[in-house]
């Protein structure tokens, strides 16, 4: 992963795969397109997942992936290295994905405006302990499907914040900057997103499905 500040000069003869992001960015800026291809290969899985989580649609996500990389390539000369390359790429991807989401005219549900504030207590309905190791109950593929479906069931306003904070692990400040919303808005949306996901996942991961929810008492 790249570090902020001036990138160190790449050692001659070092394979691209052995260079860190900052060195690859420097090489791309110097005209070596293969260095950018290495950056794409290094980050494409996470960027595709991010695009999928925001758009909620595989086809749109693939478009966003391509548009984001090409956009980053076009503007790489302006990338000053004040943040990590990956964080910069995430910002580009979020913007592309949100544009895609807004353009989807047929989807009348898409709104990134502030929702009517509800009571967080309303979001806590299921009180049931989980299995210690739900990943042993489900295959990796099943787990991925369950987690993806749970995210996609959230409104875009909540899932974008959750994905940036808890999947991409951006800070609260970075998330606020990327989405152009206030820090209190990030915090309140994140709480609602986490509680809603917890609620949905409890259906799958509760200890001994079918038992009394209070059986542990």
């Amino acid at each position: 992963m790249a570090t902020s500040g001036t990138p160190p000069p790449a050692e001659p003869g070092l394979a691209l795969a052995e260079l860190d992001d900052a060195a690859l960015v420097a090489q791309t800026q110097a005209g070596k397109v293969e260095a950018f291809a290495e950056l794409m290969k290094r980050h494409d899985r996470k960027i595709l997942r991010l695009a999928r989580h925001i758009t909620g649609n595989e086809e749109d996500a693939e478009d966003v992936l391509q548009e984001s990389f090409l956009n980053a390539f076009s503007h790489i000369g302006k990338f000053a290295g004040n943040s990590k390359f990956y964080t910069w790429l995430v910002r580009i991807t979020v913007n592309q994905a949100l544009m895609k989401l807004r353009k989807r005219k047929s989807d009348k549900q898409v709104s990134l405006d502030e929702p009517v504030a509800g009571d967080n207590e309303d979001l806590v309905r299921e009180i049931a302990v989980w299995d210690e190791t739900p990943e042993r109950t489900y295959s990796q593929e099943e787990m991925r499907r369950i987690l993806d479906e749970a995210i996609e069931s959230l409104e875009p306003i909540y899932r974008t914040v959750f994905v940036l904070r808890d999947v991409e692990e951006l800070s609260t400040e970075e998330t606020a900057q990327t989405l152009e919303i206030s820090i209190p808005a990030v915090k309140s949306r994140l709480l609602r997103a986490r509680l809603q996901l917890r609620e949905r996942l409890t259906q799958y991961f509760r200890r001994g499905k079918g038992d009394d929810a209070f059986a542990y008492l």
């Binding site: 808890d166 996901l197 996942l201």
Partner: peptide
């Protein structure tokens, strides 16, 4: 506990 585990499974 279950919210903490929610974050863990995603991470």
């Amino acid at each position: 506990d279950t919210t903490k585990k929610t974050l863990q499974v995603y991470k």
